[in-house]
Structure formats: C-alpha cells, structure tokens
Computed example of a mutant assay.
Amino acid sequence: MTDYAFGTGQAADLYVDQNLGADPSRFLPPGARPAGSQVLSGIEYTLFRDDVLDRRRVAPRPLARPARVLAVFGGTDPYGAAPVVVPAILATGRPVEVTAVAATADLAHRLSRLPVDPAELQIVPPTPELAELAQEADIVVSAAGSSVWEFLCLGVPTALVCVVDNQVDGYRHATELGVATPLGHLETFDPGVASARLADLLDSADLRQRQARAGQALVDGKGRDRVAEALLALVNA
C-alpha cells in the first residue's frame, strides 16, 4: 500500500495507491520497481470496510433543521485544526448542530471554551463509528486525508481543509473535480472565506446534491474487489 510517493521505495509484486489522481508514472515508473510487478493506482482501488459500504446512501436527502455538521480532522489532529475550523462553521449564520471530533483532551478543552450555545456544539472523542456519524450528517467538514474517500462513497456533501503538505494532492484533485468544497489550507486559513463557502453549501440543495452524486459516481465502493482480484491473479499465476 502506497500513498502517492510514500512507500514506493519498497520492493513488491503489487502496489496499490488508493488516492484520487494518483499517477503511477510519477512515483513508480517501470524502471523503479521489480520486473513483472503491477500497479493499481487511483480512486477506483480505494478499500472500504463493510460499515462504510453498508451505509452508502441511495439518494441525497433534504437538509435537517438545524443542519447536522460533522467536523473531523484525523485520528490525532496533530496540528490542532478543530478549534480553528469549528468557529467558522458556527459563524455561517445558519442554524447548525456541530459534532466535533476532538482527538485529544486539550483539543476538547479548547473546543469547550468556544462562546457558543451548548446545543450548537457536541464534542466527542475519536470513534470507530465515524462512518455512522458521517451517514447521519448533512455535511462533513474534514481534513483532506484518506477519510474523505469514505465520505464521498457514503454520499455525504463534504468540505475540506488541507491540514498538512501530504494532503495537497488529494485536496486539489477533490476540489477541482467538484466533489468537495474547498475551505483552504490550515496555515493560511481564512475564517470569513470558509464561513461564506459553508453557508453556500448549506443554502443550496442543488449544490449538495450535485456534489454527493458526483462523489458517489467517482467512488463506487468496489475497490477492494478489484484489488482482491489482482492479488488472486498474482497468486494463481
């Protein structure tokens, strides 16, 4: 399993890069890998757990009132994105109920000190039930990591913040294709711009539906079948 350039220095019979826009010729040209090896590269090879596939939406649904927003920035949120981005969600001026995943006790404390109505913000610890939280949300605000592919597969309209350099490619591809709303980079985060873009996403049923349908068309959830077939073909060769 590789992640753009990460992991490509290893010798393998089968390389899998499940990222959107992954280009095997960029990091794994034929001369840089063992003879006869195979590369599966791109979003069509994304691997999903059953709990994601079982919750895949059939069609976009109407916005709840207040809108349910899930904010999650990785399992550890090492750069402290949650306390920076969550205020921008709350500042849209739209009725929202935000569930914010706080990766550490310090982040939970910082979120708890935000001057908001307690009904608007629920703070939860990291959970293995992320797919369930996302499926229940109207929109997700997320770091641009690998969880994004799950949100697209689920059919949940998603807005992204690029938190760290290794997310730049995924952030750019997803936002340029229109399957996610760009909120900017954490180091230069502009709360006003982010709030305006989130307000547009919350206000426009058409935008949410187009984004959700485009995301599911791009991420069909069959990646693990394709990878398993390729692996079996190697074993049986």
Score class of each variant (00 low, 15 high):
D190K: 07
L177K: 06
K222V: 09
L183E: 01
D203G: 02
W149E: 13
C162W: 04
D165W: 11
L177N: 15
R210E: 02
L152A: 15
Y171S: 03
E150Y: 05
R172V: 05
E150R: 04
V168W: 13
Q211H: 02
L186I: 02
C162K: 01
E150W: 02
D206R: 14
P157H: 05
L198D: 06
D165C: 08
G145D: 07
S195V: 02
V164W: 12
D200S: 09
A174S: 11
A159L: 10
V141Y: 01
L186P: 07
V148M: 12
A180H: 03
L160C: 05
L202S: 06
G145N: 09
P191D: 02
R213E: 15
T188C: 00
V148S: 08
Y171V: 07
T181W: 06
L160K: 01
D169F: 11
F151L: 11
T175V: 11
L152N: 13
A199Q: 14
R172Q: 14
R208W: 07
G170W: 09
V148G: 11
A199S: 14
A199N: 06
R210I: 02
Q216M: 12
E187R: 10
L183F: 07
R172L: 07
C162L: 07
Q209C: 14
C162S: 13
V179A: 11
V163S: 04
P191H: 14
A196V: 10
S146W: 01
V140Y: 14
G215W: 07
T188M: 06
A199F: 00
S147C: 10
Q216A: 02
H185P: 00
T188K: 11
E176V: 01
L152K: 09
F189C: 02
A205N: 03
D206Q: 15
V193S: 15
T175G: 08
S146Q: 10
S195L: 04
L186Q: 06
D165K: 13
V161C: 05
R172H: 11
G192D: 15
L186A: 07
G184S: 07
N166H: 08
K222A: 15
S146C: 06
A199H: 12
Q167G: 08
V140A: 12
A180T: 05
A143C: 03
G184P: 01
L218K: 15
Q209N: 15
G170H: 08
T181G: 06
L202Y: 06
A217T: 12
R172M: 10
K222N: 14
L160F: 04
S147D: 00
A205H: 10
V219R: 02
D220W: 01
D203S: 13
A212P: 00
T175Y: 07
V179W: 04
S146T: 14
L202R: 05
T158C: 05
A217P: 00
V179K: 09
A144F: 06
L207I: 08
V193C: 12
